[in-house]
Design a protein around this nucleic acid. Structure first.
Length: 458
RNA sequence: GGGGAGAUAGCUCAGUUGGCUAGAGCGUCGGAUUGUGGCUCCGAAGGUCUCGGGUUCGAGUCCCGGUCUCCCUACCA
């Protein structure tokens, strides 16, 4: 017998959710689902585990993928829901409609250093549209996301939109080697934090000449390239109209940038036409996104009051991903809400109301010989749609009342010998001041369910 | 991955130059009212002071190492 006590704990970067946090979190997920379905997205689900070959090569670094051996089969935990979707689209291409719009909520895993708002297991809630190459699909995704965040009551968020092809065109235009694309984009991503002065040195300094306090090797680009990048970067800063005007001036009739400019113009025009607040969708040429599969419009969303928290929602177009699984090119675009990151952000802003229980009514056990009465009463309340529990345990009335109060239960139903004889139930409200009128009333037995239903609804 | 800081009750924390039995608030449980919660009062339970080693007559306190957490940096939802 091994009686060694096991320390109850979980691995770093993972988290438990007790009811207090799980209830509002679940509400959040329900709200998101509601908006997605309003926009005509249908649910799918896929396994947490995929064959390793399906997943590799798409994340910034494959080292972040959790892998293990299933017999002689190399498998891995999915790191997002997009790659599994691409697999599904290729695998079931004969039966899926075009366009295919689906939503998917589920946990994903990344083996990286945990931080506040960054976990090793986290839930993503995605929508994607597969099969339409036009920017209309991108706009639909973006608009759905804006609407979702508004429905959730997220205060002050900004969607920053950019276009992969604009970035690629700029790289080529600046005479930078394509192999250095990712490094340049990652460096530009630091603009908002470091400013152009530092970024220009990260671009232009020799690799052996690093900046103090910055843990990244300078790229050693020629001065001419840095200058062209600077002119691109300086397009930023104004409103969308100015940025678009700047883009047109920068690229002239440079062919590789045409689609990008047109798409961004369309995104801007549509968000205006839909009456989104000025600045809600902001064209920001510095965002790059870490995943390698994006090919068109991309966007990410940050909460204005919590910039260091990172992006809570992001997405973009990835036209090449499905083709990876053998089919002809299938265009696709989509976006993902980081449920855990968004939830922890709202918690940090004090916008999450902790709820210890979902129960609305407690049937108090005054006389254990009347348990059958209590079960019947509870059944009536439940039939009326009232979330009801019968108190379980050996505690007295006082303790039961205290339990109800602490659990945030709004109504207690008291039924003892006296009430049974009178044919009533004493219905007591726990959410009122002690002297309030009607705080506790005797309700005829037949009317209890309807009465309690009205109380908890109001 | 690189650098820095921290770890004392379920939670938030105090603990003096190393010195009696390690404390508080909140929470939990019980009592003041044998059928009535919140407010008040009284009481109780709850600690291997993160773990392992060292220095010392004596370590929560000083030194070394492990683990975990937080901050900056790198990267991302």
């Amino acid at each position: 017998m091994d009686n060694a006590r096991v320390e109850p704990r979980i691995p770093r970067g993972f988290q438990d959710f007790l009811p207090e946090r799980m209830i509002p979190r679940q509400r959040m997920i329900d709200t998101i689902r509601g908006v997605y379905e309003l926009h005509g997205f249908s649910p799918i689900e896929t396994p947490a585990v995929e064959l390793e070959e399906v997943l590799t090569g798409q994340l910034g670094s494959d080292k972040e993928i959790f892998r293990f051996l299933d017999g002689d089969q190399h498998v891995a935990l999915r790191f997002d829901l997009t790659v599994p979707l691409a697999r599904v689209c290729a695998q079931y291409s004969k039966v899926l409609p075009t366009p295919f719009r689906r939503y998917h909520v589920g946990p994903v895993w990344r083996d990286e250093k945990p931080r506040p708002g960054r976990f090793r297991e986290f839930v993503q809630f995605d929508i994607d549209i597969v099969g339409d190459a036009s920017v209309d699909a991108d706009v639909e995704v973006l608009v759905t996301m804006v609407e979702t965040l508004r429905s959730l009551g997220v205060p002050c968020f900004v969607v920053r939109a950019n276009h992969r092809q604009a970035l690629q065109a700029m790289i080529a235009f600046a005479g930078v080697d394509v192999g250095q694309t990712d490094e340049v984009l990652r460096t530009l991503d630091k603009l908002s934090r470091l400013g152009w002065e530092a970024v220009s040195r990260l671009l232009g300094n020799a690799p052996g000449d690093p900046l103090p306090g910055i843990d990244v090797v300078p790229l050693g680009l020629p001065a001419d390239s840095v200058e062209r990048i600077r002119r691109f970067v300086e397009i930023r800063g104004g409103d969308n109209g100015e940025v678009l005007e700047g883009l047109r001036a920068y690229f002239g009739d440079y062919e590789p940038a045409r689609r990008a400019i047109a798409d961004l113009e369309h995104i801007d025009a549509t968000s205006r036409a839909l009456g989104l607040p000025e600045g809600q969708v902001e064209i920001d040429l510095s965002i790059a996104r870490g995943l390698s599969y994006y090919t068109g419009p991309i966007f990410e969303t940050t909460i204005t009051d919590l910039p260091s928290h990172g992006s809570v929602c992001s997405g973009g177009r990835y036209d090449g991903l499905v083709a990876r699984f053998g089919d002809e090119t299938v265009p696709a675009t989509g976006a993902s809400i980081g449920v855990d990151r968004l939830f922890s952000a709202l918690e940090e802003l004090g916008l999450v109301k902790a709820r210890p229980s979902v129960t609305e009514a407690l049937v108090v056990v005054l006389d254990r010989s009347m348990m059958t009465e209590y079960w019947k009463l509870a059944a009536e309340l439940r039939a009326a749609g009232v979330r009801t529990e019968v108190f379980l345990g050996q505690k007295g009335l006082k303790a039961q009342m205290r339990y109800a109060n602490r659990q945030g239960i709004r109504v207690a139903c008291l039924l003892g010998g006296d009430e049974l004889q009178k044919g009533v139930v004493a219905v007591k409200r726990l959410d009122m001041e002690i002297e309030a009128q009607g705080k506790q009333v005797e309700v005829p037995r037949a009317e209890v369910a309807a009465r309690v239903r009205d109380l908890v609804a109001g």
